[in-house]
Design a protein around this nucleic acid. Sequence first.
DNA 1: TCTGGGGTCCTAGGACCC
DNA 2: TCTGGGGTCCTAGGACCC
Length: 423
Amino acid sequence: MHLTDTKAIALLDCNNFYVSAESVFNPKLKNKPVVVLSNNDGCVVSRSNEAKKFIPMGAPFFEVEEILEENGGEVLSSNYELYGDMSRRIMNTLRAYTPEIEVYSVDEAFLGLAETRKGFDFVGREIREKIDKYFGVPIGVGIAETKTLAKIANRIAKKSEKANGVVDLYQSPYRDIALDRTKVGDIWEVGRATVEKVAPLGVRTALDFKNLDLRWVKKNLTVKGGRTLLELRGFRCFPLELEPPPKKNTCSSGSFSETVSAYGPLFNAVSCHLDTAVARIRKHRLAARAVSVFVQTNRFQAANYYGDSYTYKSHYPSDNLFELQEWARICFERLYRENFRYKKVGVILEGLMPTEGVTKRMYDSNPQKEKLDRLNRAVDELNKKFGRGTVHLAAAQIGKWKMKREMMSPRYTTRIGEVIEVH
DNA sequence: TCTGGGGTCCTAGGACCC
DNA sequence: TCTGGGGTCCTAGGACCC
């Protein structure tokens, strides 16, 4: 694949994705204030346009529950199977449009657009109508020379009534006007810390930022800041990544609805997360060189807070559940302190690498491992056949730590799936 | 009472070496 | 007065993303 034809980059992004995905199957949600909650029904992670008027992003649900009810709103627990399924279908539709696609997140993709007589704006509208027709999910499209500019175009596309969902800034005389209307903190990769650093220089907008001295930016905001600045000037520094880069780490973690203090139950939770993370790496035929475990008490209660992590590093990688659990146990023993009310634990598998090529060396050094590996393969088989969690570590009583999802939508996906299959 | 989860990249600074 | 000067590797933590 070569990108010589890429003239412009488009950023497509689903509006209020989780809420939109729910509305596809439940039209009663349309034109109402609707929010979707994070795991354990903790925070607001997606809002309909109506809900955005009075509910801030990320708000703890208990703080906004009342106002939502007063406004006749609806609330849903997150249904990740549904969103993942919907996302895959949308991305496949885009893929049919162009092979130059980078799936950036569950609801966003960058597309490389070749020169066309129709014009980029026309192409953007075409794609937008198609996604709306097939899926009923509204999207915003921003087009420009670089990812950073495409992000800005996309933002305006969604905000401005006049834009009708598509803004094309490619070689546009309006580019600086667009930058002037964008706050510096709304630039992609510019966060709170950067905003504070440039504020004393009178930098308020993306246009101000673009006009900063490159040397100053590189020195004070590191190479990443420099790239962002160049991208605002139209020089491509962040290329499209058509192949997802290999994963380096993977993590499974979670909060408890009620705190846990005893060693046994807490290690049980750690084992559950290990089980989840190991299943994930085995699926991708990866092995881990290190295991990190972390534990935390309630981070909103500063008094008597305890939180720490410990990493076990091995000189060889492993993808074996039983061996990795031993590593996790070593970590956990270092971390565990009595008399704390733990709120959250998690496991990170680090230094991931393909299993191929490392397997033989492992057995050379320890013949016992072959037995464990046969056992682990048997576990995989059974879980594949009868569903995940059928067989698991004795310490990992899966199901016990199920998260709170009290307002979940029904499982529409597989049955309705065929109806919205594309092309 | 209740406040998410899963990632990447970059840098500074220490350890160590010649 | 004054304490070599580079290098490399590793790690913790900051910053940012969705």
